[in-house]
Write a protein that binds this DNA or RNA. Sequence first.
DNA 1: CTGGTCACCTGGAAGC
DNA 2: TGCTTCCAGGTGACCA
Length: 270
Amino acid sequence: MPELPEVEVSRRGLVPYLNGKQVRAAVVRTPKLRHPIPTALPSLLAGRTLRAIDRRGKYLVFDFSNGWLILHLGMSGSLRLVVPGTPPQKHDHFDLEFADTVMRFRDPRRFGTLVWTEAAPDSHPLLAVLGIEPLLPEFDGDWLHNAIRGRSAPIKPVLMDSHLLVGVGNIYASESLFGAGISPLRAAGKISLARCRKLAIAIRKTLEASIAAGGSSVRDYVHSDGGAGCFQLSCAVYDREGLPCPVCCGPIRSVRQAGRSTYWCPRCQR
DNA sequence: CTGGTCACCTGGAAGC
DNA sequence: TGCTTCCAGGTGACCA
């Protein structure tokens, strides 16, 4: 499920329960997801205090006194808090056990990532290549216009390029372009500065609205079986092919771009 | 460099 | 009912 808002909502849901707590044990049940899971994690983490949980793009970074645990939810990953002693189910790959709760990482499709680093996390190869954070003030229309100058690829797959900017996945790329009234097929480099400003605002607004929507049910999201945290309920175009556009009532269309489904309203988006 | 395709992996939905 | 095919919200390797 996770795009940036889901990751951020998970982070906010975990912080009040885990920050400052001492790890009782760590359990690794799977040798590798996208990357090998370090077999030393149990010995590295036992007895350590979790100082903070940060986010970089769609990665969560767990800060311990002896290093950082870097976690990515992939396509199907989720984190939840369960009562100690709860038997693990299929696809439960990793547990971080505290005295009163257990953080459990489940990922059926196994596209997630769990790695350990003892150097500054931003210098880790997975994080060092990441682009700008769209929720920071440095990200605006002027930055975007400059960053996509000269690029002939359609704007939608460009928005999903994490080396350019992080956190905009397949859903929010479509939703943000709808918000800005820009066709996903338009060549990125041909979008005017004025429209890049609209797009930057739409991206931020879409992400923040989604975080806020999840934010009201953070506890449910982290504690539930996944029923909550359904951010798609409020999508304007994503997964709505043939349904009426919420603005003009014309039919939403879909097309495949770079192997991913794109949804847009041809009347509202030019 | 750039843009496009594919592989990674599992499960659910749709089609026959 | 059972089998097959396709699709899924991410990412990086690889190719032209």
